[in-house]
Every structure is written in structure tokens, then in C-alpha cells.
């Protein structure tokens, strides 16, 4: 029983982190038709920044403050990347793929240079380090909190997208970009804003994932495929799709790698192949991936 509870919460926590990562990825893809392959690197850089801030006691031991600062740093980095580089590649899908992948490699090497090759653990906030005991079973507190945080972010993003004028403008841009411009929507500003938001969320997610994964070389390459699968499964540009897809993939990955470690990747990519074959727009999407 205890084993299943731990696995279940692990899968939900991974799902929550995947949502923080893939919601931005999905919005960027939906609005800008841009598969941002630096997204995994944003997550990793966030994790390293968080680890450093906490180890140097810059933010005391406050993981949340570290996540906020890393989020802001990654939002700024993402904004620069969008304004200075990606902007020039509008409409050039191959160029975008190559450049975002190239920047991902650069960031990954830069991390290796700055932080070295050994994993850097990120301490769990002391208040959350002890499990909660209930009905004779132990529930890992930090994972519960990560789940709650991801749900809160999901609700916030949903409100932003569905309840504000800016959100409606973003959806209009996803729906019909040329006409959105023709009615006066400054789509290029929206691009930058959405890119910053997505990068910031990825960076903050890296910090929040720190106590679970640590910061280590290759974290980016571990996370990016998961985000890709989530978005293909859930549907490009769909927040609901990213949410549901994240928890599905979180569960498949967690249970797949504990129960059938040899088949973990097979089990992971299977739903993606099924979706691409039978429902290329994803569970909630409108555009074929």
C-alpha cells in the first residue's frame, strides 16, 4: 500500500512539473507555430539557478523565492532569445528547429562549464521535508505541495487565458493570426509576452523539481521529450490538453519505469504514436501536430 501511495504521488508530482513545463511549450507552439526545443534547457538552467541560490544562501533557504527569481531570470533570457533571434526566423520552421536546438546545446554546455558535471542536490524546504502521516501511511509532503502549486498555476493560467482581454487576444492569434493582426492586435508583443511566460514557468518548474530530480547535466534532455509527448498527446495550444496530458504522461512514466523498467520508453511513446495515427490534433487540440 505504502509503495502504491508513493508511486501515485510521485506520478502526480511529475505530472504537475510537466504541466508547468509543457503549458508554456504548448502555448508558444500554438501561438507562434514554434517548437521551442530550448524549453528543456530553460528547465535545467532554472534548476541550476535555484540550486545555486539556495546553496549560496542568497535567498536563505526559501525555495519559493528561488523559484520566483529563477523564473524571472529565465523569462528575461527567453524574451531576449525571442526578440533577438527567433523573431527573424518567423515562418521558417527548419530554421527555428535548428536554432532552438542549437541554443539548447549552448545552454547545456554553459551549465556544464559553470556548474560542473556532478549533480547538485536541491534541498527540500525544511518545513516540507517530513512526510504527513495519515491512517498509518506516510505521504511525502513536498510532492503534495508541488501538486497543489501546479493546480494553482493551472487555474491562474486558465483565468488569464479565458477571462482576460489579453487572453482572448492570444486565443484569437492562435485561431487566425493574419486576421488577428488585421483587427489591430499587436501579435508580436503577444509573442514576446507568451514566450517570456513560458520560459519563466519552465525555469520556476526546474527549481520546484529540484528537490525531486536535483540539477544535473542531461536534465534538459530528459525533460524535453516528456514535454513534447505531453503536447502531442494533449493538443498543441491547448491548456486543458497540457494539463490532462501532463498527468497521463506523469503516471505512465512513473509506473512504467517502476513496473516495467525495460519497456519504459516504449510505454511512453506508445500513446503518442496512437494519438498521431488516430487523432493528430491531440486530445484537446485543433491543429495537427
Amino acid at each position: 500500500m505504502q509503495f502504491w501511495i508513493i508511486q501515485f504521488l510521485n506520478s502526480l508530482a511529475l505530472g504537475g512539473l510537466l504541466f508547468l513545463l509543457s503549458s508554456g511549450f504548448s502555448l508558444i507552439f500554438g501561438l507562434m507555430r514554434l517548437a521551442n526545443l530550448t524549453h528543456g534547457a530553460f528547465f535545467m538552467v532554472g534548476a541550476y539557478i535555484g540550486a545555486s541560490l539556495l546553496r549560496q544562501r542568497v535567498v536563505g533557504m526559501d525555495l519559493w523565492l528561488a523559484a520566483l527569481l529563477a523564473g524571472i531570470a529565465l523569462a528575461a533570457l527567453g524574451g531576449l532569445l525571442e526578440r533577438l533571434v527567433l523573431r527573424r526566423l518567423a515562418g521558417n520552421s527548419l530554421g527555428q528547429v535548428l536554432v532552438t536546438l542549437g541554443v539548447a546545446f549552448i545552454l547545456s554546455d554553459a551549465c556544464l562549464l559553470v556548474w560542473g558535471g556532478d549533480p547538485i542536490p536541491v534541498p527540500t524546504p525544511r518545513a516540507l521535508a517530513r512526510p504527513i502521516f495519515f491512517a498509518g501511511l506516510a505521504f511525502p509532503t513536498y510532492r503534495l505541495v508541488v501538486i497543489v502549486v501546479s493546480v494553482v498555476v493551472a487555474v491562474g493560467l486558465h483565468a488569464l487565458l479565458e477571462r482576460t482581454r489579453i487572453g482572448a487576444m492570444i486565443r484569437a492569434g492562435v485561431d487566425d493570426m493574419p486576421i488577428a493582426r488585421a483587427v489591430g492586435i499587436r501579435v508580436s508583443r503577444l509573442f514576446t509576452a507568451v514566450f517570456c511566460l513560458g520560459a519563466g514557468l519552465a525555469g520556476a518548474a526546474g527549481v520546484l523539481g529540484g528537490p525531486i530530480f536535483s540539477a544535473y547535466p542531461g536534465l534538459d534532455a530528459d525533460m524535453l521529450p516528456l514535454a513534447l509527448i505531453v503536447v502531442i498527446l494533449g493538443g498543441v495550444g491547448s491548456l486543458a490538453g497540457a494539463f490532462v496530458g501532463s498527468f497521463i504522461i506523469g503516471a505512465i512514466y512513473t509506473f512504467g519505469s517502476t513496473l516495467f523498467p525495460d519497456l519504459a520508453y516504449f510505454i511512453l511513446f506508445l500513446p503518442m504514436i496512437v494519438v498521431i495515427a488516430y487523432r493528430p490534433e491531440g486530445l484537446f487540440g485543433r491543429i495537427a501536430a
Binding site: 482572448a168 484569437a172 492562435v174 485561431d175 487566425d176 486576421i179 488577428a180 492586435i185
Partner: peptide, 15 residues
């Protein structure tokens, strides 16, 4: 070419 996934009111509001 109305924004089909937006409500009627949102279509007007964004413009």
C-alpha cells in the same frame, strides 16, 4: 473568418 473559438463578445472585445 471570425475567431471561431472565441465567444461573440470576445470577438468584439479583442478588436
Amino acid at each position: 473568418r471570425i475567431f471561431s473559438t472565441l465567444t461573440v463578445r470576445e470577438n468584439l472585445l479583442v478588436a
